[in-house]
Computed example of a mutant assay.
Amino acid sequence: MTTAIEKKKKKMGSAAKKEALTGYLYLLPNFIGFLIFIALPIVAGFFISFTNYTGFKAPSFVGFSNYAKMFNDSQFKAALVNNLVYSLTSVPLTILAGLLLALLLNKKLPGQSFFKTVYFFPNLTSMVAIGCVSMLLFEPTQGPINNLLQFLGMSADHLPKWFFSTKTALLTVVLVVVWKQAGYYMILFIGGLKNIPPHLYEAAKIDGANSWQTFKNVTWPMLSPTTFMCTILCIIGSFQIFDIINVTTEGGPGRATTVLVFRIYKEAFTNTKMGYASAIAYFLFLIILVVTLIQWHGQKNWVNE
Rank of each mutant, 00 (worst) to 15 (best):
6 E>Y: 03
7 K>L: 13
10 K>S: 14
12 M>S: 07
15 A>T: 00
17 K>M: 14
17 K>A: 14
17 K>S: 11
19 E>C: 07
21 L>E: 05
22 T>D: 02
25 L>W: 02
25 L>Y: 01
30 N>G: 14
36 I>H: 13
38 I>W: 10
42 I>H: 03
42 I>Q: 07
43 V>L: 13
49 S>V: 00
50 F>N: 02
51 T>S: 05
55 G>K: 10
57 K>R: 12
60 S>T: 11
61 F>W: 11
64 F>N: 06
74 S>V: 12
75 Q>E: 02
76 F>N: 03
77 K>G: 00
77 K>F: 00
77 K>N: 01
83 N>I: 10
86 Y>P: 00
91 V>L: 11
95 I>W: 04
96 L>W: 13
100 L>C: 14
104 L>E: 13
105 L>K: 07
105 L>H: 04
106 N>V: 10
106 N>D: 07
108 K>D: 04
110 P>T: 03
112 Q>E: 11
116 K>R: 15
123 N>S: 14
125 T>S: 09
127 M>F: 15
129 A>D: 11
132 C>M: 15
134 S>E: 11
136 L>K: 15
137 L>D: 11
140 P>S: 07
140 P>G: 06
141 T>Y: 08
141 T>W: 02
145 I>A: 07
147 N>K: 15
148 L>R: 00
148 L>T: 00
152 L>Q: 11
154 M>N: 06
155 S>R: 05
158 H>V: 09
159 L>D: 03
163 F>M: 07
166 T>I: 02
173 V>P: 05
176 V>F: 05
176 V>W: 01
176 V>T: 09
178 V>H: 00
179 W>T: 10
181 Q>P: 08
182 A>Q: 08
183 G>C: 04
184 Y>W: 07
193 L>A: 02
195 N>A: 13
198 P>V: 13
200 L>I: 15
205 K>A: 08
207 D>V: 06
207 D>I: 06
210 N>F: 04
211 S>H: 12
211 S>K: 14
212 W>A: 12
212 W>N: 10
213 Q>T: 13
215 F>E: 07
219 T>V: 13
219 T>I: 14
224 S>A: 13
224 S>N: 10
229 M>W: 15
234 C>D: 14
236 I>W: 06
237 G>D: 15
238 S>W: 09
239 F>S: 09
242 F>V: 01
244 I>V: 12
245 I>W: 03
245 I>A: 06
251 G>M: 01
254 G>M: 04
256 A>E: 03
257 T>S: 02
261 V>I: 05
261 V>A: 10
261 V>L: 11
262 F>L: 12
263 R>L: 14
264 I>T: 04
264 I>Y: 00
267 E>V: 03
269 F>Y: 03
271 N>H: 02
272 T>F: 08
272 T>V: 04
273 K>H: 09
274 M>E: 10
278 S>T: 12
284 L>P: 00
288 I>K: 04
290 V>G: 00
294 I>G: 07
296 W>D: 03
301 N>I: 12
